[in-house]
Design a protein around this nucleic acid. Sequence first.
DNA 1: GTCATTTAGGATAAGTTGATCTTGAACTCC
DNA 2: GGAGTTCAAGATCAACTTATCCTAAATGAC
Lengths: 174, 174
Amino acid sequence: MISQTLEYALRAVVTIAQHEGHPCTAKQIAEITQVPAPYLSKLMQRLVRAGVVHSQRGLHGGFVLAEEPCELTIWKVVDAVEPFQRIHECPLGIKSHDSTLCPLHRRLDRAMEMVQELFCSTTIADVLAEPGAVTPLCQEKKTFMINANIKSLKHSAEESGKKKTKKKRTPAAE
Amino acid sequence: MISQTLEYALRAVVTIAQHEGHPCTAKQIAEITQVPAPYLSKLMQRLVRAGVVHSQRGLHGGFVLAEEPCELTIWKVVDAVEPFQRIHECPLGIKSHDSTLCPLHRRLDRAMEMVQELFCSTTIADVLAEPGAVTPLCQEKKTFMINANIKSLKHSAEESGKKKTKKKRTPAAE
DNA sequence: GTCATTTAGGATAAGTTGATCTTGAACTCC
DNA sequence: GGAGTTCAAGATCAACTTATCCTAAATGAC
């Protein structure tokens, strides 16, 4: 229900927010978020074009958030990578349903509306600040996280042998 | 966010419920729901295997609901055609996150949980009974609907020249 | 200016979903 | 049992999503 690409984008944005102050390179983000590097690269381009992040080429370049984490909602990221298809008119083309959707489509749209509301009311800062929680996306505890990540990146980036995990998406768990 | 196939399945189930008492053929359902007939046929097979509807071959055969509309929830249909992927463990494989998801994944899962709750609490009967509403999926007012549909089907089925509309899915509206 | 670094963009491939077609099997009616 | 009706199943195709690769363009350090 939540696409792979959207999940990737959110991971990336959270990662950049965690390293506020200096840009993250696509390679760094890819390692932390465990997203295939070439694909992440494309995805970052989308985020740049949508104005969610800014990019900077060259040495010490990378990506930074275009907004403060407390201003950037999950919704904005969703909207950037794959705009939600709210149901605004009858999918069957029944004209009389365009003003008032039929009960079925009203409910489907209501479901999407609820998700939209939740996403609109959640900022990246909210995700980072979650009290008592484990750190988003990373093993370490909150305080140590940033330095730990940066250091481990510096190292692992050197030899980054491409480890093809080839993990097949589990088709159903529920 | 809600897949084409799921939408088709719900249209089909609602249509069958609207014609309770006698089976609907795949052809009839396809016309009413405006779903490509061969595809609907495959989809109905899935619903049969999942136990949402029963099928009957031969003259006067077709599909009927396996449960009363007031017992059949939208959720059961969802679960039959494409089981929701709730997030039960950390998608990044971080072991310490499996018991308590990180804030990001917790929120994504929460969004899905909300939708699940809404779908679980809505039955097909609810959809049909919506007060004051237009009839699900069809132009006519509630009382006239059933006969009108059946009759118009009898006619249009005769000459049903395959009209290739080839309507491209509108990529984004929101 | 040159070089290492880093993003941008195009072309392409693999995998999944959406859609079609054809044949076979079950059922009703006569 | 034969004819007409209707679902079942397999093979196939098209479109979209996910993923990869390679080359170009921008940037900063020297």
